[in-house]
């Protein structure tokens, strides 16, 4: 039951969410908008990895989710420092 639910409902919902935030990443008028979109993409990827762990029954995928969350946070902070310390402003 869980497997059919995952393949028929959960993955399409998360895929639509990824697509919408990728549109914002491509469109976003300023650099901080794109950073926000990247952060949301990382959060959705953490969710997808969790769903994949449930689907396959491999517990180690949760460690991958931890690592992805960590790198996403560091990337967001690094981008913010870059923007604030005066990187390229022309987006």
């Amino acid at each position: 039951m869980i497997e059919t639910l995952i393949t028929n409902v959960i993955y399409p919902l998360l895929a639509v969410a990824l697509l919408l935030s990728a549109i914002r990443l491509a469109k976003g008028p300023s650099l901080p908008d794109r950073v926000v979109a990247l952060e949301l993409i990382a959060s959705i990827v953490v969710g997808i990895i969790g769903v994949h762990a449930i689907e396959t029954g491999v517990l180690s995928f949760l460690d991958v989710a931890i690592a992805v969350a960590l790198t996403a946070f560091l990337a967001a902070v690094g981008f913010a420092r870059f923007v604030e310390r005066g990187g390229r402003r022309d987006d």
């Binding site: 639910l5 919902l13 990824l18 969710g47």
Partner: peptide, 27 residues
Amino acid sequence: AFFLIAGALFMLVAAIGIIRLPDLPTR
């Protein structure tokens, strides 16, 4: 199943919000 559907719907709402809302703080 309940937690999965709720989580996926929250993420979809977040993505709809990030594409529909007008400026950086609201996004």
